[in-house]
Computed example of a mutant assay.
Amino acid sequence: MTDAPHLLAEDRPEYERILDDALRHARDHPALDGVGDRLNAEQLRTMALYATALISAAAGTEYEQYVKAREEQRGPAGDPAPDERRGTGAGAGAVVTVLAPVLAGSAAVIFLLVGYLIQALGPDLPIAATMVTAGWFFAALAAAATLVAAVGLLLAALRNGSTSLPADGPDEELPEEVARAREAWRHALLERGILPFLRDALADPAAGPASRTPHGSPNRMPKIGYSRPEFSGPSEGPSAGPRPTFTSPDFSSPDFGGPEHQPD
């Protein structure tokens, strides 16, 4: 029951924040005066997370309106964001910026190594000086490319930080319509979902989550009780006749005599 099909993954942290805030300020809610007596806050939180789908369903209407207003503000799903439209050019530039210092540095190492090795073997060979000169040129190019890459990464980080949208939070600046829809959902979730669930859990800790479904939820399930069937022996009414009795047969040994006692 922890999975709520109608509650998007991006809104689950907000659900948990509202739940944690309610438990943190339980003393301010008369219905939660029993927190800590039968059940502590951590136990109640675990139970409420297990029943996320049932609790969030109590504010299903407000949540649908909030999601609709948010999606309208974000625009059509198929319309790419400006940063995505610039993705191809920015990606090619980033690849060149990263590879240039690596390639220039590798060339500098190769030319310098070969040039100084040739100078050690034959100091009079003119190619040695050429290789060394080329090596130092690539070394300077690698240093300049590294500096340019560092500046480019710094500017990209500043640009992305200024244009990125923050995650939903208590202090996030939202358009007025989205903010109103969000606040209505949060209020309904707290008043019609979380608080009634916690109140019922404190009243009857042994009941299952289905019996604590908040009132007004379409998924409310009645508590079903089962009792052990009683069995009794057959009744002895008027129709019951006397039970038959059995006696063992009387066996006696045959009467045997001598020849003089032959039967007539």
Rank of each mutant, 00 (worst) to 15 (best):
M1W: 09
D3V: 13
D3K: 09
L7A: 07
E10R: 11
R12Q: 08
R12V: 12
L19G: 03
D21R: 13
A22Q: 07
A22D: 05
L23S: 04
A26V: 01
R27S: 09
D28H: 06
A31E: 11
G34C: 04
V35R: 00
V35Y: 03
R38D: 10
L39E: 11
N40H: 08
N40P: 01
E42R: 13
L44D: 05
M47H: 08
A48E: 04
L49D: 06
Y50A: 13
A51Q: 04
A51I: 04
A57S: 11
G60D: 11
E62Y: 06
Y63G: 00
Y63N: 03
E64D: 12
E64A: 15
E64Q: 14
E64L: 10
Y66S: 07
R70T: 06
E71T: 11
E72Y: 02
D79Q: 15
P80S: 09
E84C: 04
A92T: 12
A94W: 06
V95K: 07
V96C: 07
T97G: 06
L99I: 03
A100P: 01
P101E: 05
A104Y: 04
A108E: 02
A108N: 01
A108M: 01
V109K: 02
V109N: 02
F111V: 00
F111A: 03
L112I: 00
G115Q: 02
I118N: 02
A120E: 05
G122F: 10
G122H: 14
D124G: 01
P126W: 08
A128H: 00
A128F: 02
M131I: 00
M131F: 02
F138D: 00
A139S: 04
A139D: 02
L141A: 15
A144T: 05
T146I: 00
A150D: 04
G152S: 12
L155T: 13
L155A: 15
L158A: 10
L158V: 14
G161H: 13
T163W: 09
T163K: 07
G169Q: 14
D171K: 09
D171R: 06
L174T: 05
L174R: 15
E176G: 14
E176I: 06
E176S: 13
E176N: 09
V178N: 10
V178A: 10
R182Q: 13
R182E: 13
A184F: 03
A184K: 15
L189G: 05
R192P: 02
R192A: 10
G193Y: 07
P196Y: 14
D200C: 05
L202M: 03
L202Q: 03
A203S: 02
A203Q: 06
A203D: 05
P209W: 14
A210P: 00
S211I: 11
S211C: 14
R212G: 00
P214C: 10
G216F: 10
P218T: 08
N219A: 11
R220Q: 05
K223R: 15
I224S: 09
R228M: 14
R228L: 14
P229R: 06
F231R: 14
F231I: 12
S232F: 13
G233K: 05
G233F: 10
P234N: 09
S235V: 09
R243C: 03
P244A: 08
F246P: 01
F246K: 05
D250S: 08
D250Q: 11
G257P: 04
E260A: 13
E260H: 08
D264H: 15
